[in-house]
Design a protein around this nucleic acid. Structure first.
Ligand code: FES
Ligand code: FES
Lengths: 181, 181
DNA sequence: CATAACGCGGACTGATATTATCCGCGTTAT
DNA sequence: ATAACGCGGATAATATCAGTCCGCGTTATG
């Protein structure tokens, strides 16, 4: 269990698939099945991305999610903050005020401003956030796409099209959405 | 509960007190009482610092800890790694290999090397670690010392001397180590 | 208009990490 | 001999994480 949890891994990878989907809305179930991850859990992540304005939701049958901004305009930091909720790298418990020398009444010079130890951690956090802010979803997608052979894009489109056309669901005849493993 | 836990706060602050103590060995109980934190818990942190070569321990009565290196030679990163055990900022679960398009048998191009998403997190982690590596214990101590008035150094020495001379402990006459609050 | 596939949110559970306490062991200055 | 040390293991309380389950309102389809 690290600072950046699997929710971020799920979220970023899902957003990358959305860049592939173009203007087609993909449901959270589509994305979960496509990636072999838990649908219930992924379904808890997307509302956060929607509130952050990264993704737009359409409700009802054939609903789903689409990117609401161009991949170039979405930074890794925005995704992380949307999912993790801007949680601090270090949370200071204000040890310094409990020093026995002060005897329960720490002088103002000891407690005003940010503790020097805390400041070090804040600088480290800022460095991390700056690094994340400097990478866009488009950058990541490009790096990922460079590894895949040309025919992979077509295979992806086929999978998505099959999925989207099969998922309509006629009453009394539930569509089988199983994809052969 | 953040990535850098209170153990780090306890550890760094304790090491700062050790820089004040000079060549006197301070016990973990001294350091805990001085800072108003849990002795039992601090006692679990110091062995880690000792294994990392940051402090030296002396056993037996009047034992305790001393810095084993000059404060200039101890970086914040070394302290964090010693205490947290080099835990990663992000731990990749290799989502990419579970893609349904691959059907359980992901091709090598998909799984070799580091995932582009993972790479972004690794860059962020490196930025954080570089920031920590650039700050020494001496730097932090200087920033902290600049805030304190000149007479504070003397008060600290007095507190430490009183503590060290009072803690000897003659059989049958347990020393009272209570410091008036 | 009934149905099923959607998104949304809350309640709930199991696993793991953190924080903290307590105990017993070997060491060592008095 | 005693008491103050460091060291390590066992234990417990709490919090977060990962994941599931259910019910609600919405909406395209037949
Ligand atoms: S008081 Fe929290 S880091 Fe110094
Ligand atoms: S597979 Fe883990 S980050 Fe991409």
């Amino acid at each position: 269990m690290a600072h950046l949890t699997v929710s971020v891994e799920y979220g970023v990878h899902s957003l990358l698939w959305l860049t592939y989907a173009g203007d087609k809305a993909l449901s959270s179930r589509d994305l979960a099945d496509l990636q072999g991850i838990s649908h219930s859990y992924l379904a808890k992540i997307f509302p956060k991305l929607e509130k952050a304005g990264i993704v737009r939701a359409s409700e009802g049958v054939r609903g789903g999610y689409m990117l609401s901004r161009a991949p170039e305009e979405v930074s890794a930091l925005q995704i992380v903050d949307a999912i993790e909720g801007r949680k601090p790298l270090f949370d200071c418990q204000d040890i310094r005020g409990r020093c026995a020398i002060f005897g329960g009444a720490p002088p103002t010079w000891a407690t005003n401003g940010v503790c020097a130890v805390h400041a070090v951690m804040l600088r480290a956090e800022k460095a991390m956030r700056d690094a994340l802010a400097g990478q866009s979803l488009a950058d990541i997608g490009r790096a990922l796409g460079d590894k895949a052979p040309p025919e992979f894009a077509a295979e992806t489109q086929t999978w998505l099209d099959t999925r989207l056309s099969a998922r309509v669901g006629r009453p009394g005849a539930p569509s089988e959405r199983e994809v052969p493993t």
